[in-house]
Amino acid sequence: MADHGIPHFHNDKGVAVIHVGAREFMCIGAKPPFDHPHVYLDMGGDDEIVCPYCSTLYKFDASLKPGTCSPPDCAHHETAQAAA
């Protein structure tokens, strides 16, 4: 699957907080191949959530577009791989 409807975020840099423009998303921990199991996180009515695997704190920011984040390089975009 080259693209997905649920945004994916990572914390390769080890930042204290990632601000996100979505309340539902996937945390992958670090970029592959060092990622943890991709965890679906749903803030519900809350404005923040902590990933149970990597302890990254995510905070909802309504000023960000859905699927974007701050810092912006914490967004993970999967690319299709060619078949061998």
Rank of each mutant, 00 (worst) to 15 (best):
M43H: 11
G67S: 12
Y40H: 14
D46W: 05
D61K: 02
M43W: 07
P37A: 12
T68E: 13
H36N: 14
F34I: 05
Y58D: 00
H38F: 11
M26Q: 04
R23T: 15
L41W: 10
Y40T: 11
D42T: 08
I49F: 02
A30D: 02
P32A: 09
G45E: 13
C54T: 03
H38C: 09
M43A: 11
V39E: 14
G44D: 10
Y58I: 00
F60D: 00
F60R: 05
D46Y: 10
G29C: 07
Y40E: 11
C54I: 05
F34N: 13
A22Y: 02
H36W: 06
A22P: 07
P52S: 07
S63V: 08
G29W: 03
V50N: 00
A22N: 10
A22R: 04
A22V: 07
E48H: 10
T68V: 06
L41P: 07
P52M: 07
D42R: 14
G67I: 08
P33T: 12
I49M: 06
T56N: 04
G29F: 04
A30Q: 12
L57I: 10
G29L: 01
T68H: 10
K65D: 15
A30E: 06
S63K: 13
C27I: 01
L57M: 00
P52T: 02
L57W: 00
P66G: 03
H38M: 12
G21D: 11
D35C: 12
G44K: 09
M43S: 10
V39Y: 06
C54G: 01
L41R: 13
K31P: 04
P33V: 08
H36R: 13
A62E: 13
M26W: 03
L41N: 08
F25S: 03
Y40S: 14
